[in-house]
Design a protein around this nucleic acid. Sequence first.
DNA 1: TAGATTGTTAATCGATTAACAATC
DNA 2: TAGATTGTTAATCGATTAACAATC
Lengths: 227, 227
Amino acid sequence: MARSNPPANSGPDAASSVPGATVARLPLYHQALVELGRDGETTVSSERLAELAGVNAAKVRKDLSYLGSYGTRGVGYDIDFLTKQVSRTLGLTADSAVVIVGFGNLGQALARYSGFAERGFPIAAIVDIDQSKVGSTIEDLPVQHLDDLPAIVAEHGIAVGVIATPLSAAQNAADALVAAGVQSILSFAPSNLDIPDSVPWRKVDLATELQILSFYQSRGGTLSHPA
Amino acid sequence: MARSNPPANSGPDAASSVPGATVARLPLYHQALVELGRDGETTVSSERLAELAGVNAAKVRKDLSYLGSYGTRGVGYDIDFLTKQVSRTLGLTADSAVVIVGFGNLGQALARYSGFAERGFPIAAIVDIDQSKVGSTIEDLPVQHLDDLPAIVAEHGIAVGVIATPLSAAQNAADALVAAGVQSILSFAPSNLDIPDSVPWRKVDLATELQILSFYQSRGGTLSHPA
DNA sequence: TAGATTGTTAATCGATTAACAATC
DNA sequence: TAGATTGTTAATCGATTAACAATC
């Protein structure tokens, strides 16, 4: 654990193990740092960063310590430098193209949503299994057929697949994305998926979020912001 | 901790403390149970439920034990009965009306998305602060003004506010929702919000999900499905 | 009875936090 | 030097899991 100033491992970092809970918070810090940078700030303390991220200061320091020793005692963290380190740790060094699978309600909604592109995840393609939907366009993007996924992924260098199909089609979509060679998958279907260990994936279920809130709401709201 | 068979507390349950990690998984079990019910199954083992939810069987039994002693040794869990218990614990006994704040890209997307209503959270109203947007309709719903929120919430008995504004307007939206009397808040803005402890809230940031995936992707994908 | 499966225990593991020495 | 703030330690807390007695 001995770590001197910046000697050997200031480069791509002594990678390996960042705890899962820390990884999940790095995007929070990243977001706060970007905002501070926009505001013209140059340094930030763990105290301030914690306030912006909605966590406690000890946690911020502990989390950041997994990336390296990038603060200055008595001063704080250099915002530009730390932003770069967090970006690098998260692998956000370049944009990652996204393909949306499923041109139903949710797929169309996501296609119109500009939030992905704004944060470095441009939507490069949309596919559906339904021939009657293929050929229509949305936001200048043509809807293509699921069968063409391997070619589409290769052509655009697509890294991420987003599953926006009905529940019944989600596993098939996952299989197609894996076969086409995407490197990770985000699913909006409320079911578990069978995906090889080599492809990290996550699930976002909007109704689940509301159901969790429902629990805390029904208990008089003693606990705020249950993470 | 002593809990005998079903004597005193089989009713609204010895409420109090269900661990946060368990609460976050109850919607997973709920979803799996609903699907099993649709398939005509009548009982399920912790093993099978675990498989469907993507967790391990010991965790399922431990989680369910916080709700009460609702299984039968040697047999498993009655699906109908357990579904009701999980619903009751989550406070899903009746539909909860939702208001969407922000009629931009994301707000319109959510308004078109039917997934909320299908899971018991019908969208009852949409508001925006921009007068030029007020009066348009989407999916038969009129866009109303943010200033009318208190009346709208009261009239429709709205329980949940969904923040779909730009980052810069999110805190103002939160303040308005709290003042209007919603009971919980789901925010899509990638920032921390200052909300009283009496109103539970959660944040869903789609780009954050992709950034977390980016980390695991860049590490060779050793870890699958990082929760 | 034999087989199956729960509910609970206890060990382990990982995450959180306060505190403080190091050091700018 | 005095004040501020990091990086790390160590204690605590909560979550996970295997194992198994209880019991259908």
